[in-house]
């Protein structure tokens, strides 16, 4: 089944629809975590297209998410929903958010053509920061006070529908003939160029598409938390997403999904740990500060297992593995 993204996609959508029919009595705390997992899957899988499959290093994914979140939130707040079904209205808002984020991604992708590695990381970080600074200066969406979103349209079904859609599109894209170009750019840009692959175009497509899905995730997030503020999309949010991609193994979609689930649950579990009075005081303090653990995790992973937990082990693979003769 895992070799057929289409089947997988259909099953995932059917499953999320079925589950959403029976999820009325779920504890709100768990419901909150479950939706966060779905949103983080979208973010991590879309960043994986840029950082993993295409081998670029973006540190500004939270910036794209912010662009999407604010655009979608502004759409549902300022556009009167005359005679449109609520669902269609919400989907339009999400699409607008995705589009705004994609435009921002295009704006990053175009100058990034000339940069690689360290420089690209810093430029994307800078872009993310600039988006936050701009949002802090737009008074209509609450500037640095934050923006309250009246309508909480996000539900289980739409979150997991878009999570499934993101996974489907990206897995299918990278596995297609066209998508091999992304991997070629990652493996050796100069060689890819020499083979006639338009590396520039591939990088821009990766950035724009990755940003589009981050924007959708932002829109879902805005209509789920119903309050967004520019500080919530700062550098540390980008790092959260980057850690998911690195932990799962860059370019390994199934691994990245697993890491997104793990790293959404982990902080909640740590919160429980930090409440256990029988544990030593310092341990509870460290458990409270998840960023210390994340940073150590990054360092230890890079020293001992730079390919991430799952490395190159594939769950989604359409083409058969070839054994060396």
């Amino acid at each position: 089944m895992f070799e057929r993204p289409k089947t997988l996609f259909a099953v995932a959508v059917a499953l999320s629809f079925a589950v959403s029919k029976f999820s009325g009595g779920v504890n709100p705390y768990y419901y909150d975590i479950i939706l966060s997992i779905g949103i983080n899957i979208i973010l991590a899988v879309s960043l994986n297209l840029v950082n993993g499959h295409t081998g670029q290093f973006s540190l500004g994914h939270a910036g794209f998410m912010a662009a999407g979140a604010y655009t979608a939130a502004a759409f549902t707040t300022f556009v009167p929903p005359h005679h449109i079904a609520t669902t269609l209205f919400f989907l339009l808002a999400l699409f607008a958010g995705g589009l705004a984020a994609a435009l921002a991604g295009l704006a990053v992708g175009v100058p990034s053509l000339r940069l690689k590695g360290d420089y690209l990381a810093i430029v994307t970080l800078g872009f993310g920061q600039i988006i936050v600074v701009i949002l802090q200066n737009i008074d209509a969406v609450g500037a640095s006070r934050g923006f309250s979103v009246a309508s909480g349209y996000t539900n289980f079904f739409w979150t997991y529908f878009f999570a499934a859609l993101t996974v489907y599109v990206i897995v299918h894209l990278v596995d297609s003939t066209y998508g091999r170009g992304f991997l070629a750019v990652r493996d050796d840009e100069i060689a890819a160029d020499a083979m006639g692959i338009n590396t520039t175009k591939y990088k821009v497509v990766a950035f724009t598409l990755g940003a589009f899905f981050a924007g959708i995730a932002g829109g879902l997030y805005a209509h789920f938390k119903q309050f967004i503020s520019p500080d919530g999309f700062d550098f540390f949010k980008s790092v959260d997403i980057v850690v998911m991609v690195i932990l799962g193994g860059m370019g390994n979609t199934a691994g990245v999904i697993f890491a997104a689930v793990l790293l959404t649950i982990l902080p909640e579990w740590l919160r429980t740990v930090s409440g256990c009075t029988f544990l030593p005081h310092w341990l509870r303090d460290v458990a409270q500060n998840r960023m210390i653990l994340y940073s150590l995790l990054l360092i230890v992973l890079m020293l001992t297992r730079p390919q991430g937990l799952f490395g190159d082990a594939r769950l989604f693979r359409r083409t058969p593995k070839f054994k060396k003769p």
Binding site: G55, F57, L59, G117, D118, A121, V239, V242, I246, M291, I292, Y294, S295, L296, L297, L298, I299, M302, L303, P306
Partner: peptide, 15 residues
């Protein structure tokens, strides 16, 4: 690879 070192440096900074 450069990327590994870069990620580590970010880790050290966050730490």
């Amino acid at each position: 690879p450069k990327l590994t070192v870069l990620i580590t440096a970010i880790g050290v900074s966050l730490f």
